[in-house]
Simulated scan of single mutants.
Amino acid sequence: MATGNVAYPTITIDLILDRLTTKDVLKAVLHSILFHRLFGTVKPQTFEVLDVTMPGVSDAGMEQLVNEKVDGLWKGIENGAHKRGQIRVTFSEKRPKKSWFQVYMGEEDVPWEQWVINAELRQPKADSDRQAFNARLADTLTQALHTMLTHTSSERGRAVVPLITNASGISPFPIDITVTVGGVEVG
């Protein structure tokens, strides 16, 4: 799961999407990740995508953030030569930052978990291919949900969550969502 010298888990979800479902699928997947990793008071909602019901977060700020990131990826893929993009959701905790001589230098965000959504845009060649394409995508979404549930409820998935010392707001931890298309950050 973890890659390189990264000390925190990285969970990867690979999606092959088409023009009709890209935005809905990405919004549902992002919302589902946030639903499983926000520890404040979360008002739930659901997303129905290709007959797969996915949990989400009913919060204006989170919805705006998700929409901005999905739109950024969509515009990058739609307007560019690259038909692949990536959305990274990084959960961090605030820790005191110290200098060489143990002098307190403010706070820094230290990641404890990252989710990587790899999205590739493809078009079914004919209408007859669409059913098979949609069925594969529905299976992928079901598997992604299973991955989320398995990871967040596992011993390791629970162990990486830092102590919650600030109970205000929807998330006690900083969340960073970055979008890249063709290796370039967008949005």
Rank of each mutant, 00 (worst) to 15 (best):
W115V: 01
E93H: 12
N134A: 04
L73H: 13
G106L: 14
V57C: 00
T22Q: 14
G157K: 10
W115C: 06
V184L: 14
K69P: 07
E108S: 11
D59N: 10
I77D: 01
G187R: 09
L163S: 07
D127A: 03
A7I: 02
T152S: 15
V110A: 10
R122P: 04
D18L: 12
V110D: 04
Q114L: 10
K23I: 01
A60P: 05
A2N: 12
K27N: 08
L65P: 02
G56N: 15
F133V: 00
K43I: 07
L17W: 08
I13M: 09
F101P: 00
T53G: 15
T10C: 03
E48V: 01
P55Q: 06
T165G: 10
I170V: 13
A119R: 03
T178A: 15
I175H: 02
R95C: 01
L17N: 05
Q102I: 05
L145K: 11
L50C: 13
Q102N: 07
E120K: 04
W74L: 15
D59K: 06
R136D: 15
K75D: 10
V179M: 11
S153Y: 09
S154Q: 00
A132Y: 07
P124S: 05
I11K: 12
D127V: 01
M148T: 01
A135Q: 14
K43V: 07
A81Y: 01
T21G: 00
D14I: 02
A138V: 02
G4M: 06
D14A: 07
V184G: 06
S128V: 15
V42K: 05
G157D: 12
K43S: 11
W74Q: 14
F173N: 04
V161P: 15
Q45K: 15
V52H: 04
V184A: 15
M105R: 00
L65C: 07
G106F: 13
A144M: 09
R84E: 08
E155S: 09
Q86S: 13
I16S: 13
T3A: 12
T165Y: 08
E78T: 13
H151E: 15
A7M: 12
P111M: 05
P9V: 01
L15Y: 06
M105Q: 00
L73K: 12
K23T: 01
V161Q: 15
S153K: 11
L121C: 03
T41E: 12
V160L: 13
G72R: 08
R84Q: 08
T3N: 10
F91G: 06
T10E: 08
A135C: 07
N67Q: 06
A138R: 12
P111V: 02
S153M: 06
P96F: 12
F101V: 01
N134R: 08
I11N: 09
I13V: 06
T21S: 03
P124I: 01
V42L: 02
V116E: 03
P9L: 07
L163W: 07
R158H: 06
V70Q: 06
L30Y: 01
L163D: 09
T21Q: 04
S32R: 08
V6E: 03
A144V: 02
I175D: 02
V160I: 14
K94W: 13
V116M: 02
M148R: 05
N5K: 05
H36N: 02
A81P: 00
G80H: 15
V49W: 14
H82Y: 13
L137F: 02
D24C: 11
L121W: 05
L149P: 03
R84A: 09
